[in-house]
């Protein structure tokens, strides 16, 4: 089901949690809401879920009005599934009972028991929990718990799936493998997914579209490639691509860096950044050399990461991050120059 969030604002007293958020989500699209904690992303999800009412604006699902400041379709009638960061499993129910719970509602009273039973085992199978059907939540690992929550959310084949940082409570390795499962579920159910996260790699990996939020406002919305390669705001640039923002003066498509007066080509840079006199460079777009025609800098910190080395270098009082291949090694406090690689932009 398509979703339309139209100029939605949410106030808590005098605090503005969301201001004027607008986005249209197509049927079956996987949209990530990405932002640091406190940016309003969870509030937005709760508004879509119907747990709270917007202070302003409207939320539509297809042609149905779901939320407005004075009308709010109750959660249970929105035909959605939800997955929580905390898993939100009921400690007194087994895995099977969790999957069964949504089917106990009046709506499904007409379906006969054997059909329900096969639906339950099918769903548990699809998340790989068939063997654990009779376990209680405290007998499951974190990944298994989140699979139970997924099974519960998808069993009624809802048209909208809301996911509130579902992977944050899992350890690093499990996060990566669960990404695949969530993508599989997206393909299998064809549901519209609204996925909240603060982890940019998760958003880049899974989403059809990313919406970056900050202080209750949308910073930028677009496909992962757009967001990663063409950030439109300093925040989007540094939050997702870890861009360094060089300062300088723009002359049409030419950028003159302020400390070295080097000139960079920048046809692809977004006009918003140009207006601010900024030039975004990703850490992997720099190359470190001992001498040459580049931005003079000094190595301040290095972290060996196996595949590459992450350097923090200081250039005229500002820190710049550079990822360099392992074969080039520089010492602390060594004076170097930064040269921008060609061909990326």
């Amino acid at each position: 089901m398509s979703l339309k969030i139209s100029n939605v604002s949410k106030m808590y007293g005098a605090n503005i949690a969301l201001s004027n958020v607008f986005i249209e989500i197509k049927d079956g699209e996987f949209v990530c809401i990405l932002g640091p904690s406190g940016c309003g992303k969870t509030t937005l999800l709760r508004l879509v879920g119907g747990f709270e009412r917007p202070s302003q604006g409207l939320i539509y699902s297809g042609d149905t009005l779901y939320s407005s400041p004075d009308r709010c379709v109750p959660v249970e009638r929105r035909n959605l599934g939800m997955v929580f960061q905390s898993f939100a499993l009921w400690p007194n129910m087994t895995v099977r009972q969790h999957a069964e719970f949504p089917l106990l509602q009046k709506k499904y009273a007409g379906i006969d028991a054997s059909k329900k039973k096969s639906l339950i085992s099918q769903t548990l199978e699809s998340v790989g929990l068939s063997a654990l059907a009779n376990r209680y939540p405290d007998e499951l690992s974190g990944g298994q718990k989140q699979r139970v929550a997924l099974a519960r959310a998808i069993i009624t084949k809802p048209q909208i799936l809301l996911m509130d940082e579902p992977l944050s409570a899992l350890d690093a390795e499990l996060k990566i493998s669960m990404r695949k499962e969530i993508q599989d579920i997206h393909r299998m159910t064809g549901a519209t997914i609204l996925y909240v996260t603060h982890d940019q790699s998760e958003a880049l990996a899974m989403a059809d579209r990313i919406m970056i939020m900050r202080n209750g406002e949308v910073e930028q919305a677009g496909t992962p490639e757009e967001i990663y390669l063409h950030p439109r705001t300093p925040f989007a640039a540094s939050f997702v691509g870890k861009y360094n923002l060089l300062r300088g003066i723009w002359d049409h498509d030419l950028f003159y860096e302020e400390s070295s007066n080097l000139c960079f080509q920048g046809q692809m840079i977004e006009p918003e950044l140009k207006k601010m006199g900024l030039f975004p460079v990703r850490p992997d777009e720099f190359q470190i050399q001992k001498h040459g025609n580049g931005i003079p800098a000094k190595i301040k910190n290095r972290q060996y990461c196996g595949r590459e080395i992450h350097y923090s270098v200081e250039s005229s009082g500002r820190l710049i991050t550079v990822y360099a291949p392992v074969r080039e090694s520089y010492k602390l406090n060594e004076s170097i120059v930064l040269i921008k690689k060609d061909g990326m932009n």
Partner: peptide, 8 residues
């Protein structure tokens, strides 16, 4: 909330 989202 999980129960509400499950239609309860």
């Amino acid at each position: 909330w999980a129960a509400r989202a499950s239609g309860c």
